[in-house]
Amino acid sequence: MDPKLLRALNAERAARRAAILVTDIATEGAGRERLVRESDEIAGPLGEALSAAFRSGKSGAVEVDGQNFFLNVHVPAPRLVVIGAVHISQALAPMAKIAGFDVEIIDPRTAFATPERFAGVDLKAEWPQEVLARRPLDAYTGLAAVTHDPKIDDYPLEQALRTGCFYVGALGSRKTHAKRVERLKAAGLTDEQVAAIRAPIGLDIGAASPAEIAVAVLAEAIAALRRRNLGRFRDKAAA
């Protein structure tokens, strides 16, 4: 592999853009390679195979016109945006980081969002409106809203549902959630969109402590990421 190709691929990955490394594995001494970006227009059967691979996000070998190619599909690393610098988030941030998520925590309450409580974490002591305006959500991002406070949680939840984030979870009792559903519908979201919220948040593993709840939330986010139909989310994000 040409080192330039490796650097170009890593640059695409760092910019959160999908890319495919196409390797010729048919011919003896395999290794002819090219990098294809999602914006590249590739005609013919190989182009169709590439489009399908971008949609599925899955790597694999394809045969085109009697030639064998290996398509290594690199989709952006999943990101987890956590609304609320609470006790659960202190456990969730390092766990999610180990699991491969880029983690960002947003909480305008400066008493909660302190570097002491969140050493080494991308922490924004600002309103979600301000942070999301600078760095919008995308289909490769999941959102967990854990403040219980509608003033803080509602806006990012609405944005996450409109964007088609792969995971949208919200902390709160069933009663709290019922009120939240009413507010989000009043804001113009459809029943289908609102139904995508995972609430009460987290897989039902009987979690009791903040750290255990963090495990339940992370597991739910991973399940949403791995079982989703990537193409559906990508189309929604493009629309």
Partner: peptide, 30 residues
């Protein structure tokens, strides 16, 4: 708990190693 690092992607490691003058091979499950 706060000092844990995310597991890096091997491709980032490959670029670092190359920049450091090391010779590198990449193995891929195809």
């Amino acid at each position: 708990a706060t000092e844990v690092a995310a597991l890096r992607d091997p491709l980032d490691t490959a670029e670092d190693w190359l920049a450091g003058g090391r010779k590198v091979a990449i193995a891929t499950v195809v």
